[in-house]
Amino acid sequence: MERYCIKYSIERVDFRVLTFLPLQLGDLSMIKSSAEQFLAKETRLDVQWNNADVMVSPQGSKTKQGLELQIGVNNLGHFLFTWFLRPVLEATAKIAPRNSVRVIWVSSSAADAAPHPAIDFENMDYHREEGIWPKYSRSKAGSVIHSAEFARRTQGSGIVSIALNPGNFVANLQQNMSKMQLAMFKLATSHPKNGAYAELFAGVSSTITEKDNGGWVSPFGKVGPARKDLLDPELGRKHREWSEAQIRPFL
């Protein structure tokens, strides 16, 4: 099972501390504990980057709860973790500079390649099998849908929700690609630091304001429109309700 870490920095008057806390997104039963560990240490959260990801997992890969792995990690794990941290985000927004409290949902260029419709609510368990790339694309589209719906539901709270495409980079994320796929992928990649720039831009740039809430950042720090159908309020509502039903046993 994949493991991830919460990484966050704490700035005080004259020192910085980098702290790591365990977060296993592939097991919904463990996410509440990770959130509680963070909340036991901190009373504010200025920026949350939902960054962890699995990509083109082998057919049949599942989470601890039996969900398709990419939906479980890329969508539901982040959704549940954000659910627990929403109160501290809202509390921080009341005291932090305007537009500075944000939730960043890291998506991908793959979101634009998701099938139409992007979410097939009749096949969320993939009893009708799909290829590994459509599955990944659907999970990345799900990140955009979560971001837009979170923006709608927190409107007026001071939180800015942004989805983004960090760009294409070679990392261990491509470990499940074939050699030929990886060789072709490398033709369209840039240095990983550019992805960091895109994420930092979304998280801390003063040019992003409440008017960009629910918006989209493309490489390497450009605000623009996301795929239009992913921003549909009715799709966001249905996706949110499905997600809530999956996480309810773990609240």
Rank of each mutant, 00 (worst) to 15 (best):
V13L: 13
V106N: 01
S33C: 13
Q65L: 07
K41L: 15
T92D: 01
G195Y: 00
S33E: 15
P115Q: 02
Q70Y: 01
M30A: 14
A114L: 02
R128N: 08
L164Q: 00
K32L: 11
K179R: 14
A111L: 00
L25N: 03
W49N: 00
L251M: 10
L18P: 00
F150T: 11
M177Q: 14
A188T: 14
C5V: 14
E234A: 14
V223I: 15
T63A: 04
R128M: 06
G224C: 15
V73K: 00
L28C: 04
T154V: 14
I95Y: 07
A52Q: 03
F121L: 09
E149Y: 11
S205A: 12
F38V: 05
I31V: 15
V73Y: 01
I104V: 11
F250W: 07
A35T: 10
V56A: 09
S34A: 15
V217A: 01
G236K: 05
Q181C: 10
Y197P: 04
L18M: 12
F38G: 02
K228G: 11
A163R: 05
R16G: 02
E199H: 08
P134C: 03
S137Q: 09
S178R: 12
Y136P: 06
K222A: 07
L45C: 05
N123K: 05
E210L: 06
H127N: 10
A163K: 02
N123Q: 07
K94G: 10
L18Y: 09
F84T: 06
Q174S: 12
S9V: 15
D53F: 00
L230M: 11
H239R: 05
M30Q: 15
V170N: 06
V88M: 02
E149R: 10
P58Q: 10
S57A: 14
S206E: 15
P225T: 12
R12V: 09
T19R: 09
N194K: 13
H191T: 13
P233F: 11
N194S: 10
A226W: 06
I132K: 13
T92M: 06
K135N: 05
P117Q: 04
F185T: 09
T43K: 11
I159P: 07
A198R: 06
K193L: 14
W216H: 10
G158R: 04
D120A: 08
Q70D: 04
E42M: 08
S57H: 00
G203P: 00
F185W: 15
V106L: 03
K7W: 10
A40T: 12
G215W: 01
T63M: 00
A114V: 04
S243M: 09
E244P: 03
I145G: 02
G156P: 08
L251F: 08
M180Q: 15
F121P: 03
S143V: 08
M184T: 13
N74Y: 04
R237C: 09
D120M: 05
N194V: 03
A148R: 07
V56R: 09
D120V: 03
G156V: 10
V204S: 12
K135G: 06
L230Y: 04
D53H: 00
H127M: 03
Q65W: 02
R16S: 11
R152S: 08
Q246F: 00
P219F: 04
A93C: 12
L69P: 00
K62N: 06
V54P: 03
T207D: 15
V101C: 01
V13E: 14
L39I: 08
V13F: 09
A183R: 14
A40K: 14
F81H: 08
S61A: 13
F250C: 04
N176V: 07
F220Y: 13
L182Y: 09
S190L: 13
L230E: 06
G142D: 02
